Amino acid sequence: MTTAPTPTLARWFEYMDSDDPDRVLGMIADDFVMSVQFSKGGGESAEFVGDRAGLVGYLAQREKSTLVHHIDVGVTETGHEMVLGRTTRNGAFEASFSAIAQVDAAGSVRRLLIARTPEVSFG
């Protein structure tokens, strides 16, 4: 995983890939809002939305320590971090993802938008 130039998202996905992904709850601002667009492929998808409670619900339904996020391209601009990456399972491609985080002056995530699909590979 790349740690620069998107240190917040790099840490976010490092936590998500660990045995304790709930650590991301310590990274969010009081006014946090998120949307995760999650495609399983073949036109099947789900959206996870909300504030802290929405993130807690998303974390509760995820598989732990099975996927690895790889950030392939990242940029930081004016309090926003944006990445394009891929997830792998046992070293094999699973899905592409993009993520955008708005980060406040204290380094907390205020807004988070993630989209993933197994249908498109940038490799």
Results as ranks from 00 to 15, higher is better:
S45F: 10
V56A: 04
I71A: 02
H69S: 03
S45Y: 06
G42I: 03
H70S: 08
S96E: 02
S35C: 14
E94C: 00
V56F: 02
N90Q: 10
G79L: 04
F48N: 12
D72C: 09
G50F: 04
M82L: 14
G57E: 15
E81F: 00
G42T: 06
G54S: 13
E77G: 11
H70V: 04
A46L: 11
V33Q: 13
F97Q: 00
V75R: 15
L59A: 12
V36D: 09
D51W: 07
L84G: 08
K64W: 07
G57C: 06
N90E: 12
E44P: 01
H69Y: 01
G91I: 00
D31V: 08
L55Q: 03
I71Q: 03
V68H: 07
V49A: 15
E47S: 14
E94R: 01
F32A: 01
E63L: 14
R89K: 14
G57H: 12
G74H: 12
S45W: 11
M82H: 11
V33E: 12
L59M: 14
V36K: 10
F97M: 02
E63W: 04
Y58T: 06
T88Q: 00
S65L: 08
L84Q: 09
T76K: 09
F32W: 06
D31Y: 09
A46I: 04
L59R: 07
T66R: 14
T88H: 01
V33P: 01
T87E: 01
G57F: 04
S98K: 02
G79I: 06
N90C: 02
F38R: 06
S65H: 12
M34Y: 06
M34R: 04
D51P: 05
E77T: 10
S65M: 05
Q37I: 02
E47Q: 15
G91D: 01
Y58K: 06
V56N: 04
T88F: 02
M82Y: 09
H69C: 02
G50V: 07
K40H: 10
R89F: 01
T66P: 03
H69P: 00
T66S: 11
L67Q: 05
H70I: 02
R89L: 06
R52G: 07
S96V: 02
E63Y: 07
G74K: 15
T66V: 15
L67H: 07
G74T: 10
V49I: 14
R62S: 07
V36T: 07
T66C: 11
E94Q: 05
